[in-house]
Amino acid sequence: MTILIGYVPTPEGEAALEAGIAEAATHGDDVVIVNSGRRGATVDADLVDEPAGAELVARASAAGVDARVDRSLHGANVMDTFDALVESTGARLIVIGLRRRSPVGKALLGSDAQRILLDATVPVLAVKPAA
């Protein structure tokens, strides 16, 4: 089976990567590291380049996990990318990292993580970075 890991180069993304690789190694799954940029954006600090992507794959390989990086572009709703990948890979789990948000931020602002938590068709493992 496959595990999708939502990854951005932040402490939250690192926490998701570590948890996803550990889960995959435990259950013999492969992983797809999803590093999806917004369609039409000219600059996106959350995107990893080829060498950084190769390093992520090497980290998974060191744990005995087959991995690849998916850089599919998404529109207004990143969930479309995850839905397509769940369908095409048969993924059984999505792993994402969460950051701390204030109650006002939670009430007023949507987030990609919130959309994934609410709309995913497979279970979602949400992790936080170590304090």
Score class of each variant (00 low, 15 high):
V57A: 04
G53F: 01
A62E: 14
D66A: 13
H27A: 12
G64W: 05
R101F: 01
A25V: 08
A25F: 07
V34R: 03
P129Q: 15
D29F: 13
A54W: 01
P103I: 03
G28P: 05
Y7M: 03
L17H: 05
E50Y: 04
A19P: 01
H74V: 03
M1C: 04
F82Q: 03
P9K: 07
A120W: 10
R68T: 11
K128A: 14
K106M: 12
I5D: 04
V124N: 09
Y7I: 10
A19K: 08
V127K: 08
A16E: 02
A62Q: 12
V43K: 11
I33Y: 03
E12F: 07
V127D: 02
G97W: 10
G37C: 07
N35L: 06
M79W: 01
A107I: 06
D29Q: 11
A22H: 10
V124I: 05
I3K: 03
T10V: 05
D49V: 02
L109H: 12
V122N: 06
E18V: 15
V31R: 05
E87D: 15
L47T: 09
H74N: 13
A113F: 02
G97Q: 10
S36L: 07
S72A: 15
V34Q: 01
G110R: 10
H74F: 13
A131V: 13
D46V: 00
V65P: 06
V31A: 10
V104F: 15
L47I: 12
I3E: 03
V48N: 07
G37K: 06
L17P: 03
V122I: 12
T26H: 14
T2N: 15
L109Q: 07
A126I: 05
A52G: 04
D119M: 14
L118S: 07
A76L: 10
L85K: 08
A24W: 10
A62L: 14
V48E: 06
G20V: 04
D80Y: 00
N35Y: 06
V57E: 14
K128S: 13
S72R: 15
S61M: 04
R68S: 09
G40L: 12
A84R: 12
D49R: 02
A25M: 09
A84K: 11
D44S: 12
A58R: 14
L118C: 01
T89C: 06
L85Q: 11
P103F: 09
A25T: 11
L109F: 15
P129S: 15
R100Y: 12
K128H: 15
H27P: 00
I33P: 00
A67F: 10
V57F: 06
V127N: 04
R39G: 00
R39Q: 11
E14I: 06
V65F: 07
A25W: 11
M1L: 11
R68H: 05
A15Q: 08
A25K: 10
G110A: 09
D119F: 11
L117I: 09
V78F: 02
V34F: 01
T2L: 08
V8E: 09
S61Y: 00
E50H: 07
T10H: 05
E18L: 13
D70Q: 03
L4P: 02
T10N: 08
L73F: 08
I33E: 04
Y7T: 05
D49Q: 02
G90P: 13
P9G: 06
A41K: 12
A58F: 00
A131G: 14
R115W: 02
N35P: 08
A15K: 09
V104H: 04
N77P: 00
V86D: 01
L109R: 09
V95L: 02
I116M: 10
A91N: 07
R59N: 01
V86K: 03
A107V: 10
